[in-house]
Amino acid sequence: MKKTVVTLLIGLALSACGKVPKGYNGKFADAATGAKLTLEGSQGSLVTTDGRTLEAKAKALDFEALVKGEPGIYLRALADDEKKSEVFWIFPKQETRKQEFDFVWVEAEVLYSRFTAEKDEKVQQFKMIHCTDGMILLDLPSRSWNGGCPDTALEYDFVRRE
């Protein structure tokens, strides 16, 4: 199994200090694809269905870093529900970065999920989508950005193993 250890400043932190909430610590697996996810404090690693291993550390990501195409994490609380947050890590492909008229877009490997903030009790199951051909778009004047995956993204249904 090909193992690509990618030191990514990624993680699934849900707090400003970049730690995985206790409720999400543990080992999870997706039965359909065989992907395995391990979360521990500020560490995370994902073994993908094609055998790649993505290891990550939690680190806050800022807009400037995204503009530069640096990989990182981003946490965004939902406007209508402060207890929930969008969590995704982004691994931009620097060679695809383009910028025109203060608008930047770059292809990226994208993982996306939603966590409940500060959840202490053990979470047994949660979903995540994953694509290697996602896209991130940033508007420099308004400092806003968006991103996502095409309809071919994988959908993981992670169930706790430990």
Partner: peptide
């Protein structure tokens, strides 16, 4: 400007 197809999170 930008890609022909944009993506948004769910």
């Amino acid at each position: 400007i930008g890609p022909a197809t944009q993506y948004l999170m769910p």
